[in-house]
Nucleic acid binder design. Sequence first.
DNA 1: ACAATAGTGTCTGTTAGACAGTATTCA
DNA 2: TGAATACTGTCTAACAGACACTATTGT
Lengths: 232, 232
Amino acid sequence: MSHAKPDLTVDIVLLTLIEGRLHVALSPRESEPAKGKWALVGGTIHPNVDSDSTEAALRVVREKLDIAPRHMEQVFTEANGHRTPSGWSASIVHLALHDPKSLTETVERHAMQLFDAEDGGAHLPKGLAFDHKLLINKVVQLLTVKANYSTIVGHFLAEPFTLAEFQSAYEAVLDVVINPANFRQKILKRDTDLLEPMDMVHSFGRPARGYRLIRHLEYFDRVLVEGTRAAA
Amino acid sequence: MSHAKPDLTVDIVLLTLIEGRLHVALSPRESEPAKGKWALVGGTIHPNVDSDSTEAALRVVREKLDIAPRHMEQVFTEANGHRTPSGWSASIVHLALHDPKSLTETVERHAMQLFDAEDGGAHLPKGLAFDHKLLINKVVQLLTVKANYSTIVGHFLAEPFTLAEFQSAYEAVLDVVINPANFRQKILKRDTDLLEPMDMVHSFGRPARGYRLIRHLEYFDRVLVEGTRAAA
DNA sequence: ACAATAGTGTCTGTTAGACAGTATTCA
DNA sequence: TGAATACTGTCTAACAGACACTATTGT
């Protein structure tokens, strides 16, 4: 067994929701390989610094953007002999969500950019580093499935948020149109509460009740969405 | 960065269904560390042999048991500094399913054993190697969630299987009691077929239609199960 | 008063779940 | 013929989805 061990890295697909579309945070690589190309937030695991891979992912985000994302979870590991020019490597890929206002400001402060991540990566810049386009596509796909069964899209919103905002997050991620009256009933009239009431939120018209998520990451027994596929 | 890279391994939680309970295939470790302790099927990735981590997992199962499991998928990666005595290491953990008849024979031929993997590992042998008890518990939990939304439990059955057998697999994994008439309708009267009819299966009483899975790994829009939690 | 958004009540078609009953095999 | 298992039809309560309506704010 004299072969070099594979590299072990973490990559974070950090997403937010801007004008109803998923956007991913990318930064230009500062060193070889793939210098200058747009890349995911990521880095090598430091065994003497990181106690586990989740800590490593949080450290990398903190070093790069100086924030703790509103949600982060490990989703899969991409490990093969052809994903980087230097041979075998493994990346533990994480999905992270953050609210658009905070993330936009943060990204601008750190010479990064947000790119539309939908439509299979068609709107991403050409020539992303390594297999990052593939990683983004896989994560977006996973998020879409998970959104059907959970309140995960609530992590795109700064708390307190209104039911209308919560609904819009579902509509954006799932690409459907939801009836507000039925959405309200389905979310609020449950045996076990998903949301906790907070202060009122004022904007136009009648003020709305603000809510925040309780019970993160729980799976529903049904799909949450009514709805008619959104028109093109 | 002169630190040693973490070890990169694959571990396979190979499960089957015996007398209505999930069982995991374990083998006694033949070398240090943890020599003699019961351990998951697993091994180090060989960069010059394995093209990717899935290939590595299949190779390890083939070398150890000489079979290709009826189902295998990557589920998560456990990576931290305290899971093995030798320091930082990462294991890409896979869930594999196989039918009980074939797996029982295979396991006996290779000095391995099947252990009841339910109840949080309470029936596993004491002192499993490394963090393998934790890995088993996490995988069993994931399988249970996934069973609600998919036909994954069908991979415990040799084809062709009957609807009664298919139903029993759900009942065992989800620990519920299902009404056969309703189960039949729910599975067969769908817009998109889940099962393909095959030859009849004869045992006692009236022969039953045999089926095999089509459309693997697809998510339903609802939980598949009716049902009353099974009595203790 | 009006525009704008929040929130409620009620109807209807669909379906999950319960259950009674029929069909086909083997001994 | 009876035991055992496979399969079908139908009823009912629950609920998803549609929609009309009322409520509360700012201008």
